[in-house]
Design a protein around this nucleic acid. Structure first.
Lengths: 363, 363
DNA sequence: TTGTACGCGTTATCAG
DNA sequence: CTGATAACGCGTACAA
């Protein structure tokens, strides 16, 4: 097509009166170049606006400088849950900081064929040097293969298998402390609306819920729990069912803020008020949770740090500076507002959005 | 690092007893290969699981097979508006269908320095072959440079300059017909809440609003209009201001569904009911608009087609099968539900979500 | 500190 | 139809 054959290393070498090697060294910050020469070369590079050809570089160095970011095929749907975009953004940010570019791979990690395609299209041709997988599922067909290939990857969210690389937040601890907080408010009929437990983090959130109940000596079988799809409506109806049932709960722990908002909505639609009739705690601490009117108490996960950690781990793996499995945990904390029953009027002043942060006191 | 030196064209050639050229031809579907030979080569390829090296291929062919997708640096915020994710998804889908991979470039198109960096990091090294720009702003520092470089790109949303490549929806026609529809409902005090007009589509939506008013002989100066930020809260307060003002409107045309929802929320918070006291029409026709309870009448844009069109145009440009400027328009239509004042009970039956689609009758 | 020479794995050109 | 052979643009031991 267009054939504006651009500058090459050779051209710069001639212009600067040195060899290609020297130019290459300058470009790659190799210290073995006399300072005066380096400056001269840099000047001619700047003058003609030379940029090394990426493909040639990748071929010779065997490094593409690209990592893949696997997102679910239902990209648009998943984004309906506002906690996901910040995660992607933090991955993109962190990747840029480490000099990597990001290729977005919208693929199922459950579908065997999709996984095969992904591998033969991006990994075997060495297009990408590593993989960040944003959704950690129980039925994961991808990581087993990556594992056996020894290909650098990191899951966001732990895997059920013990030998996987991942970064994760302490989901279990998060819901445990949240539930405990509700119990301390005097809740006696706890309930939970969880996401589908094919997602490992949902599983963990349920376990934390149960941990707290056990610690308090509450019979698990007497409590209610439902699972709904994280990304679709459904929480609303699920909440209505619970609240209209025989054993109406006095608090609901939601596995996401989106679910929590639906719960509150449902409760109010049948004349209940939050937190008087029903205490609610969510998970994620999305922006909407911080809304003054809503004041949703929520388990906060450090989304930004999570993305950065993922990239960091991946880059370590790529550079062989870490031996797999690499596993990193980040803490969740409880952002206390008022849907849990805490009185916002006694919240510490000077806190713009009436928000108080931090884990509840350990028991 | 790992040095599992994988199969090369040469290896396959030896195994199959042919030359590298022949193998290359087979890989690239070049017809000039005897059928029997082709099969033999394909078999050995399949057996050893050979995949051509992407970097070598890119170097020799001068084609990377990668396109860049420019998204705003406030990625996560922008995603707060649910119409964006489907657009990105459709771009990713369409790109995959045409054999291109997508690199996400989270960059400002307004910041001169960011633009320079983008060009020197991705375009000059020939990492990408073309660019899809998802946000068309008036203060665009990127397209002028692409234009003068002759680099293939396409804007999603028209530019104010006449020589740009773009795909866009008929925003102006959309709001024009929507406003006309409201007027036909008997609205006499129209108002609009628009997005910031630095975004060209917001500008167009305002123009369409004004078109309809002029056609109806309504004095523009007597109507109210406010601009709010598309991606942030603010519409709520803006609506309250309008509704509490001296010249309370009887209908509000919102430049997005997100804004429309805030408007309805605001109206109900002060005891007004929709559509009885206030008719509302939104824009985008996001999923939430289709919600039974909400029943938001909205100008629908064919988001999926928009993404596909963008990729299509870009690929044409890349392959030199189209001469710039290439400009493509897609139609908007009005999805009539009940916030505009239409009675849902007289809607045609058998339509699951009580939705009626299509442009209103031309005037 | 600098330059030479070869290799990276394909595609493309040109004979045959 | 097939096979040498030359690019493609850069990294890098190795030698100087």
């Amino acid at each position: 097509m267009r054939d504006d054959r651009s500058m090459t290393l050779n051209d710069i070498a001639k212009l600067a009166g040195v060899s290609r090697s020297t130019v290459s060294r300058v470009v790659n910050d190799d210290p073995r170049v006399r300072e005066s020469v380096r400056r001269r070369v840099q000047e001619t590079i700047a003058q003609v606006g030379y940029q090394p050809n990426a493909a040639a570089r990748a071929l010779a160095s065997r490094r593409s400088g690209v990592i893949g970011l696997v997102v679910p095929p239902s990209f648009a749907e998943v984004y309906a849950d506002p906690w996901f975009p910040p995660l992607v953004q933090s991955c993109l940010d962190a990747a840029r900081d480490t000099g990597f570019s990001v290729m977005v791979l919208m693929d199922s990690v459950e579908d065997e064929e999709a996984v095969t395609t992904l591998i033969s299209r991006f990994i075997r041709p060495r297009t990408i040097e590593g993989l960040v997988i944003t959704n950690s599922l129980q039925s994961d067909a991808l990581t087993p293969k990556l594992q056996s290939m020894g290909f650098p990857y990191v899951l966001i969210g732990r895997a059920v298998e013990s030998d996987r690389n991942f970064v994760d937040v302490t989901n279990r601890q998060g819901t445990r402390l949240a539930m405990r907080h509700l119990l301390e408010h005097g809740c006696r009929r706890p309930a939970m609306i969880n996401g589908e437990e094919t997602i490992v983090s949902a599983l963990d959130r349920r376990l934390g819920f149960e941990d707290a109940l056990e610690e308090a000596g509450i019979d698990l079988h007497a409590t209610q729990r439902t699972n709904v799809d994280f990304w679709r409506p459904g929480a609303h109806d699920a909440a209505l069912d619970m609240l209209r049932g025989d054993h109406r709960p006095d608090c609901i722990l939601a596995a996401s803020d989106t679910i929590a908002i639906s719960v509150i909505d449902a409760a109010e639609s049948i004349g209940m008020s939050v937190p008087e009739d029903l205490a609610v705690i969510g998970f994620d601490d999305i922006n909407a949770a911080r809304n003054e009117r809503l004041g949703l108490t929520s388990v906060k996960q450090p989304v930004d740090a999570l993305g950065r950690a993922a990239i960091d781990v991946l880059v370590q793996l790529i550079n062989g500076r870490a031996q797999p499995p690499v596993q990193r945990w980040l803490d969740t904390t409880l952002s206390i507002r008022h849907t849990c029953g805490c009185d916002p009027s006694i919240a510490p002043p000077g806190d713009g959005d009436g928000r108080k942060e931090g884990a509840v006191a350990p028991g």
